[in-house]
């Protein structure tokens, strides 16, 4: 953002306010006139509901018995945090987040390299193919993977019965481990293109002269990769990982379609949905929502403070 430097000037001057020309004043007014509506809408659709959720979370409030609403302070939070369901769901969510992000980073980097190096003749084809999973509806992806593995409608058991542990009677969705495997496979398939496009943009920023110089100096492929390319695209990798981690942490669609949380596959988003929308426990559900929000903030905080991910810097540049 090359122009942002100018806006960094102190806004509350000690001396009498500087006399802005009419031109400057008009530009500032126009700036907020144009940007204001989008800003207000963004706040209205997120800040207001989350504040409402914080408020509702302090009450014992069920839609099935709205008249019995009473203030219980942090009671809902105590209920949730002492319930093992919350901790189990948090564990499942974190497991899915870590596994999918690690696999996607490796797979996405391979795809990015392929797209980066591809001959002109196949480049368009590869990008088009990769965008199909990106654009496809997550629910459709979930059904595609579910039906392929399902014991009744699937063909995976037949195709892979030579693999130890897979036989025609294996019901993938009857226990947690195998269910999570398919859930994560669908999630990885659908979202790897996004991470690979972010990494592709990072790859494009590594100066060609650097890699060529390393090649001339006799560096092996691995040396070029680990000493030149990866360090130069660290920022892009960090941003890709953080964005995908936050996205994976909110996983909902795949789990809802495939198991609906059965056999210990419930994730936090599903817990919030089940509490508020299915059981109509608005107070308790709001507390789950607020806790989920705090988790996301925490992940962001850790990434930015510990790993120094410069989100604004990489998204939009400086």
């Amino acid at each position: 953002m090359s122009t942002s430097v100018k806006t960094a000037r102190p806004q509350t001057a000690q001396k009498p306010a500087p006399q802005f020309s009419d031109r400057v004043k008009a530009e500032r007014r126009l700036g907020w006139l144009l940007a204001g509506p989008a800003f207000v809408v963004m706040l209205a659709v997120t800040a207001y509901p989350i504040l409402q959720a914080v408020f509702d979370s302090l009450f014992n409030y069920r839609l099935t018995a709205p008249d019995e609403r009473e203030f219980i302070g942090l009671g809902n939070y105590a209920t949730i945090l002492t319930d093992e369901v919350w901790w189990r769901d948090l564990g499942v969510t974190l497991l899915i987040t870590v596994v999918t992000v690690v696999v996607e980073l490796i797979l996405g980097f391979a795809l990015a390299l392929v797209m980066h190096k591809a001959l002109k003749s196949v480049r368009g084809l590869l990008r088009t193919a990769i965008l199909v999973p990106y654009g496809i509806i997550t629910v459709v992806s979930a059904f595609a993977w579910f039906y392929a593995f399902d014991i009744n409608s699937g063909f995976i058991n037949n195709w892979f019965d030579w693999v130890p542990g897979i036989d025609p009677d294996l019901n993938w969705f009857a226990q947690g481990g195998t269910s999570l495997f398919v859930i994560m496979a669908s999630e990885i398939w659908k979202t790897t293109p996004f991470i690979s496009l972010l990494l592709l943009a990072g790859l494009a920023q590594v100066p060609d002269e650097l890699t060529e110089a390393a090649e001339v100096d006799g560096a092996t492929w691995w040396e070029r990769m680990s000493r030149v390319i990866l360090p130069n695209m660290k920022a892009a990798i960090m941003v890709a990982v953080l964005f995908r981690a936050l996205d994976a942490f909110r996983i909902f669609d795949n789990v809802f379609i495939m198991t609906n949380g059965a056999f210990g596959t419930e994730v936090l988003s599903l817990l919030a949905y089940r509490t508020s929308i299915s059981r109509l426990e608005i107070g308790l559900g709001s507390a789950v929502s607020v806790l989920l929000f705090i988790c996301v903030l925490l992940i962001c905080f850790i990434a930015i403070k510990l790993f120094k991910v410069d989100l604004a810097g990489a998204r939009g540049g400086k």
Partner: peptide, 23 residues
């Protein structure tokens, strides 16, 4: 306020959707 607007957009895009569904 430019930076504020961009930061807000970023914050909204990482917002957990399910958190605002209940309210």
């Amino acid at each position: 306020g430019k930076k504020l607007i961009l930061t807000t957009a970023l914050a909204v895009s990482i917002f957990p959707v399910i958190s605002i569904v209940t309210p």
